[in-house]
Amino acid sequence: MADQTQPWAERTVEVPPQPGVGVPPQRDGFRRGVAPVGQPRTPRTEPFPVVGQEPTGTGWPEGPTPRRPMSWHLAQLRRGGEWSAAGGLFAFVCWGIWAISGRGDLTAPLLIFVLSLLVAVGLFALSRLVGRVVLERQLGRVRRSARGAHLVTAVFLAGLGVAWLQQTEWVMSAWNWITGR
């Protein structure tokens, strides 16, 4: 047994090499006892090229940037669509209550509903454009869905539905009766 009064480094014992047991080969230029401080790392993946942007340095493919198929763009637009669908359904129900309560010709209310949906589509497109300018161009991020634009559109449609309900007399009288006003 080793003397316990000696420092630990002096108490260690070298183990002789054993046949069949070896040190596995190291990867990534690893050397025992040498830290890779200050050495540039090689990236694990190449940067994703932005469609329409010109190559600015290394890592870019030669030639024009590859275009994505239309199915990819449509799939990206569908992600988050449940928000717009829920807002549209709420707006439709509220519009129906408002239109039927008018007790008249439904031509004008139908035109108002169609124009409101067109405004919602325009708001969705504007939200996508702002997202493209801010997120992709200025911040350099990749958008993987349209959830933000669908959420903005859903909030607009829900607000539109509430506005239609506020214009319906019996709904407002019922609301005032429930709230005690």
Rank of each mutant, 00 (worst) to 15 (best):
Q4L: 14
P7A: 03
G20N: 10
Q26H: 09
R32Y: 15
A35I: 11
R44K: 13
T45F: 15
T45H: 15
E46V: 13
F48A: 15
P49E: 06
Q53I: 09
E54R: 15
G59N: 04
P61N: 10
G63E: 01
P64K: 06
R67L: 13
W72G: 13
Q76D: 14
R78M: 09
R79M: 08
G80W: 09
G80L: 09
G81E: 01
A86W: 06
L89H: 09
A91F: 12
F92Q: 08
V93W: 03
V93R: 00
G96Y: 05
I97A: 10
W98N: 11
A99T: 02
G102C: 00
D105H: 03
L106W: 12
P109M: 01
L110Y: 08
I112P: 04
L115M: 12
L117Y: 06
V121R: 14
F124W: 03
S127D: 00
R128N: 13
R128M: 13
G131L: 05
V134I: 09
L135Q: 11
G140L: 01
R141A: 11
R141E: 13
R143D: 13
A146M: 03
A146F: 05
R147H: 04
V152R: 04
F156D: 02
A158N: 11
V162I: 15
A163V: 03
Q166H: 11
W170Q: 04
V171W: 12
V171E: 08
W175M: 12
G180P: 04
G180I: 08
